[in-house]
């Protein structure tokens, strides 16, 4: 939900930016402005990357320091974690686990995204339906994921289904809320314009509703994706024989702290790849009209 609010804030910010840039455009040579823009953008990007790298290195350094302080049994260092990941890969566990976890997370996420989008759209467009579905969504949001896992194991038995179901049930309210707010905040003035130009229903959906809703849905999807990975791992811990979560369960049994750290690293890397390698580039492609904002933020 906070992501969604941020998004509207960004929209305002971006209007301000437009006003500013249109004011700046007067009186200056456009060419020099453009060059300056590219230079400052490069410097900004460099600083951004440098900043992120500094943060990561600082974190790793503190981890290493903690490991030296507490001993590698309680807190294995980053090198121990990497070594155990290497170990998993040699034993052939690693890729199987990554695949199992990925497809469960993605399947649950896909179900939640589709169902949440459709239901959210309907709830946003129809007030009656919105009022009926909202409490249901709140109830779903209030049920802890761990409770879903217990229910899922009782209903579906141990296995992939239990994990997928849990992921879908916990992420559905997030995508639902995103789509609902998106559909509810459609600009009335644009609707009226559509009326005057006799815009047919299919075109309204494609040209008026969807682009607007997408801008609300993406932040919700990114949040949901993060939840999906975490919940998958948790569900696997209880309900499955393979996957990253099962690996964690194994590590617990064997008191293999380094192994647990290794699995955690794997999940974090998977999440980062899914978000920055897939969802964010997709958002950039689908919303070129927002490019200015994305660049301004980074």
């Amino acid at each position: 939900m906070t992501m969604v609010i941020n998004n509207t804030l960004n929209a305002n910010e971006y209007h301000l930016r437009i006003i500013k840039s249109s004011q700046e455009g007067n009186g200056y040579s456009v060419h020099s402005l453009k060059e300056q823009g590219i230079m400052s953008r490069l410097i900004k990007a460099g600083l951004g990357w440098g900043g992120s790298l500094t943060g990561i290195l600082l974190f790793v350094a503190m981890w290493e320091w903690g490991s030296l302080h507490y001993g590698s049994f309680l807190l294995p260092g980053p090198r121990d974690a990497l070594a155990s990941i290497h170990n998993f890969s040699q034993e052939g566990e690693l890729w199987g686990a990554i695949w199992a976890t990925t497809w469960r997370a993605m399947a649950g996420f896909a179900i939640a995204a589709t169902a949440g989008l459709v239901l959210g759209l309907m709830a946003g467009l129809s007030h009656t339906l919105g009022r009926a579905l909202e409490p249901v969504s709140t109830v779903l949001l209030g049920i802890p994921p761990i409770a879903w896992i217990v229910l899922a194991i009782l209903w579906f038995g141990s296995g992939s289904m239990a994990a997928i179901y849990t992921v879908a049930a916990t992420t559905l309210p997030v995508t639902f809320a995103g789509a609902q707010i998106g559909a509810r905040t459609l600009d009335k003035r644009l609707q009226e314009m559509g009326d005057v130009y006799c815009v047919p229903g299919w075109m309204r959906l494609w040209d008026f509703y969807l682009p607007h809703i997408v801008s609300y849905v993406f932040p919700a999807l990114i949040t949901a994706l993060g939840v999906a990975w975490k919940v998958t791992v948790m569900a696997e811990l209880f309900a499955t024989e393979e996957g990253v979560g099962a690996g964690l369960a194994m590590a617990r049994v064997n008191l293999d702290t380094a192994g647990a750290m290794g699995w955690i690293m794997v999940v974090v890397v998977l999440l980062l790849i899914a978000e920055h390698g897939f969802l964010r580039p997709l958002q950039k492609r689908m919303e070129p009209w927002r490019q200015g904002v994305v660049q301004a933020k980074s």
Partner: peptide
């Protein structure tokens, strides 16, 4: 055929 121009442009920001 009747068309209208409004007080604000009312353009689709994404087109």
């Amino acid at each position: 055929c009747t068309a209208a121009v409004f007080q604000e442009p009312r353009l689709l920001p994404w087109r």
